[in-house]
Design a protein around this nucleic acid. Sequence first.
DNA 1: TCCAATGTTCGAGTATCGTCGAACCATCGA
DNA 2: TCGATGGTTCGACGATACTCGAACATTGGA
Lengths: 110, 110
Amino acid sequence: MSNKRYTCHMEPHEPDLADIPVTTVLAALADDVRLQIVRALVEDGEAACGTFDFGVSKATRSHHLKVLREAGLTRTRAAGTSRLVRLRRDEVDRLYPGLLDAVLGARSSA
Amino acid sequence: MSNKRYTCHMEPHEPDLADIPVTTVLAALADDVRLQIVRALVEDGEAACGTFDFGVSKATRSHHLKVLREAGLTRTRAAGTSRLVRLRRDEVDRLYPGLLDAVLGARSSA
DNA sequence: TCCAATGTTCGAGTATCGTCGAACCATCGA
DNA sequence: TCGATGGTTCGACGATACTCGAACATTGGA
């Protein structure tokens, strides 16, 4: 592995979804905050990190966005001082057809 | 809550899937051993607990079956000295259409 | 050049999870 | 009645996960 520090605004690590174990993808979706982020992304298309305010600190929010990104679910690009996040919907749908719809359309409680 | 001990072969707790948070269902599926169990259930229909031998102790196996059951994904019935487990496929498919297909059909690595 | 705004990283605390051996319970057959 | 078989529960352990405040990095504007 590289011993180069992963400094702040480097190109974030965005793996190919096909290289991610299914369990990792499911685990990434198995959290309330992250699910709210995903819902917001479906709704708004692309959004700056700061727009996701779900009652957690910005450190925690950053952590959740990292989990989603490293699970191959989102992509991030820099835009000024912000970073814009968007869902990799097409890739997810191709690899796991129906998954997002099933999860997001869930009319179960909570 | 009841203070009655949940002794061994009582009727197991099998909640209505609609009462389970999505995150709980996803978390239940986000484990390799449990996913193997689900795959085996899809394959074999109904199977005794003991038939799931995925390199874990029987205590661990029992734990995983409990997680699946309490997530509303499986149903268990006693049969002699064994307990037969089966997937609640129809209910899962009705509440999360496409979820199981997407997860099980995953042609991603691992 | 300095400051404010936006995120990320670090370190630490707490909680939850996966795992096991040991002890236990329930059922069936000898 | 006793033992063997099949599962469950308990208690403990180590590993992960979620959370936060604090410190840092990057960008853009005053």
